[in-house]
Amino acid sequence: MSANIFDRRRVNGPPRSVEPLYTDEGDVKPFTNGGRADGRSLDQLRPIFIKTGPLAVQPTFSPTAPSGSAYYEQGKIRISCAVYGPRQGRKSNPRMGSFDCDFQYAPFSCSWKRRPHIKGADEKEIALILEQAMAPAIRLEAYPKACIDAFVTVIESDGKFATISAAINCISAALADAGIELYDIVAACSMSLNASQWVSDCNQAEEDVSQCSLFVSRMPSADEITYLLQQGKTMPDQTDRAVQTCSNSCARVYAVLSRYLQASMEQPAS
């Protein structure tokens, strides 16, 4: 894929550049005799850190600051999200509001080649996934003619499916911070199949060697799945099992999210 498309609105580099061949990458296997390289158990998630309202401009009123924002970390994954709205939008439906999502990787956020500035098809696809995963949780009928926009930037990624799940959790927190009416918080979790064993919340190295990855986003109190995506081959009963395990993991993520949000309501950020 040609990464460098000449763009006169940016400072352009050489027409073609490649990553060097790194000789120090020994054969460190992400899975060695049943265990994981980072010492986690198979169903253990990476530690989660959330903060709502990092993009609020203090102390004075700012007409350009977002109405809600969140910063989310899960292991090495780092995501920032801003929610604007409900505000006037281009699309105006007199019965329902609309929810739009914009997703972008920072050019330096991936462990392989630098990403070009021009948005790739994968970013547009993920934006659509996020929109469809979040929309069922938002009370759009409460915002006729209005537009709610979420802008997600990945500062650092570590595993594609894990990053999508993290983005969903981040948007959930940002929507709650913006005071948008929600049916429930959407929590998401990813999983990969390696040597017929399901492994939760895989990082990039683990996803790379796995035969199949999937993620589930769920509204745990309503016990409803809002999005399910699988890539790779499995037997139907294996997927069944994975969805079950993922749902349990979503409940754990949900507990972290709701505990944080509750605490932040009781104790306004200083």
Binding site: R9, R10, L55, S80, Y84, D102, H117, V152
Partner: peptide, 21 residues
């Protein structure tokens, strides 16, 4: 080469629109 670009995305402020810089 040293190629420097500044990105002001719509995330950081409502002043900026998505799309071209």
């Amino acid at each position: 080469y040293l190629v420097t670009n500044v990105e002001l995305s719509p995330m950081c402020s409502a002043r900026f629109r998505p799309g071209a810089p």
